[in-house]
Amino acid sequence: MHIEVAVEGPYTVIRLAGEVDMHYSPRVRDEILKYLNGRCNVLVDLSGVDYMDSSGIATLVEGLQLARSMDLRFGLVGVHGPVRQVLELARLDHVFAIHDSVEDRLRSDRHN
């Protein structure tokens, strides 16, 4: 598991790579909560994630919950393959704002 953080426009982009399982999701959680608590809008880029278990998904739900309570933006990009399937299984694919890429998200923000 690997985490990289970059700022793109109004977002802090947290890029995850590898497998997000019960062992690593606490690290992902720390990272997401850290930026939200620092009042940053957060995008989580999952394009490098080839496996995510439900602790990872629950962590994303926590991020969304906290972002909403703080009136911050929180979204996912690069959702694909097994991660998408797990989100669909949990019926969360319509709960999160999901875009193909960061550029895609920025473009869509400009139109709204």
């Binding site: 019960m22 602790s55 998904i57």
Partner: peptide, 10 residues
């Protein structure tokens, strides 16, 4: 050793 909040969401 997940956080209580994470576990409850799971």
């Amino acid at each position: 050793r997940l956080d209580e909040n994470t576990m409850r969401i799971m």
